[in-house]
Structures are given as C-alpha cells and as structure tokens.
C-alpha cells in the first residue's frame, strides 16, 4: 500500500519547473581584490531535459552548479525555479556531489543514508525505508542497503548518492562531475543509468563535467563555458532524443561534429 502511495508521489515530482539563471554573475572576494568567476550567464533547464555544462577546469562550472543548487548566492542576477527566485536550497532540486565518498555519511548504513533527507521532512520510518529501498532498486543496488557506504565500491557509492537524490523526490538532479573518479566501464554504466532515470521518471538533470564525450552523450543541450571570467560561449543542441547507445550514438557523425565544435571552443 505504502509502496503505491510513494510511487504516486514520485510521479507527482516529475519535472514541471524550469530551472534557470538570468544574467548571473559571481565574484569571490571584495572590493579591488574581487575576482569575477562567472559573467552574465543565462542558462535554462527545461523540464525532463538533460543539460551538460562543460568547460576547461577552473572555468567556474562547480560555482555555477552551487548557485543552481541554492548553496551559493550569486553576486548579481537571479536563479529561478519556475517563476520563483531561489535564495536557498529547495526540495525540488537534489544534488549529487563529485566526492561521493565524503557526501555519504560513514556512520549510517546505505539505506539510512538514502532515507536521511526524508527524515528531515518528517516522513515516518517505515515509509522512508520503503522508499529508500525502492530508490536503491531503481539505481541498480537492490541488496546493499544494510552495508555501510565504505563497504561499497566507488561506482556503487555514487549510485547510492543518486538514490538519495531520487528518494528526496527532487524533480531536478544536479550532478557535479559525478563520474570523474570511477573506472571507465562503471562510468558508462552510470551514464546509461542517468539517461534511464530521465526517461523513466521524467526528471530534469544537470551534469557538470569536463569530459566532452560524456557531455554530448548525455545532453539534450551542452552549455559551453569558457574564458576568465567565464561566459556561455555556445549552447550546442544534441539531437539524439531519449534513447542512446554507448557504441552507436558515439559513432554517429552528428556526435563527432558536436564534439569537434565544443572542443574547438574550449581550446580558445
């Protein structure tokens, strides 16, 4: 019974809001020492869309993601969820951090980690545990709920972090270099998991990455950041739709073209 109820809720969470930044700038420091990192960015993430943000390292990708998450106030401009301005983290937006080994709490079992944000919302124990179980299932981790995060491999920990964001019932998932420190095969599996979740749950996903292949493979649109301070130098539409394949998609001429275009922009 509770299961059905939870699933209904999850469907309700299907992305409806557009997450956007409007002429967002961010500077660190104050006065004459201030360093502008992001300059007048405009980015939109439509419901059920995958948007990848690429750029050379130090381009302020993570800064942008932290602004989108409501963790960092912009120096000027706005972060909007629908028509509401975001000034703090909102429950519509779940974050998966790059450093999965530190974002999962080592003193809680994996399932408790996944259920923890729900406890903050006042959901009863049995209900949140059932939902956590489901979300672990959904990311392909059906049997590890009783284990501690440090007993899992890197890829499994990152799946658990994704499950936690899903359990939180966010409609928009923000991922900061989520697969930067797992091996290549695990990385492909996780990329396909992201696409699969988008397709099945109807959520929007923002992935920050420095890997251009990954960006083109995942994204409906790739936002290219470059320069100091970083500006949006290009937005590349990727026309592959919902169903993609690690081999066929990457061999497609349009994939190669998008890849070449982005690489040229980042090099300059």
């Amino acid at each position: 019974m509770t299961t059905v109820q939870n699933l209904d809720r999850l469907e309700e969470r299907q992305a409806r809001h557009t997450l956007s930044v409007q002429s967002l700038s961010k500077s660190y420091g104050e006065g004459a020492d201030a360093v502008e990192v992001l300059h007048e960015l405009d980015v939109r993430v439509e419901p059920n869309e995958v948007v990848c943000i690429v750029g050379p390292s130090g381009a302020g990708k993570t800064t942008l993601l932290r602004c989108l998450a409501g963790l960092l106030p912009p120096s000027s401009g706005k972060v909007m969820l629908g028509d509401q301005e975001m000034t703090e983290p909102l429950s519509e937006v779940g974050v998966v951090f790059q450093d999965y080994s530190r974002s999962l709490l080592p003193w809680m079992r994996t399932k408790e980690n996944v259920a923890f944000p729900l406890q903050g919302r006042g959901m009863g124990r049995s209900q949140r545990m059932a939902l956590a179980e489901q979300c672990l299932d959904a990311v392909g981790l059906p049997a590890v709920g009783r284990k501690y995060p440090w007993q899992l491999s890197g890829g499994m920990q990152q799946r658990a972090a994704i499950a936690r964001a899903l359990a939180y019932q966010s409609e928009i998932l923000l991922m900061d270099e989520p697969f930067a420190s797992v091996d290549a095969q695990t990385r492909f599996d996780l990329e396909d998991l992201v696409l699969d979740l988008r397709k099945r749950l109807g959520i929007s996903i923002v992935v920050v990455t420095h890997d251009i292949d990954e960006a083109v493979y995942l994204a409906d649109r790739v936002v290219v950041l470059s320069g100091h301070p970083a500006t949006v130098v290009d937005v590349v539409d990727v026309p592959f739709g919902m169903d993609r394949d690690q081999i066929d998609t990457k061999a497609d001429a349009r994939f190669t073209e998008a890849r070449r275009r982005i690489l040229n922009e980042i090099r300059h």
């Binding site: 999850l10 489901q134 990311v139 392909g140 890829g155 095969q185």
Partner: peptide, 14 residues
C-alpha cells in the same frame, strides 16, 4: 505505468 517507472533498470553491476 507508475510501477514500471521504478522497476530496476537494465544496468546491473557486472
């Protein structure tokens, strides 16, 4: 359609 949404994905750890 709802329960289908959360059935485990094909990606299972090798």
């Amino acid at each position: 359609a709802i329960s289908e949404k959360l059935s485990p994905p094909k990606v299972v750890p090798d």
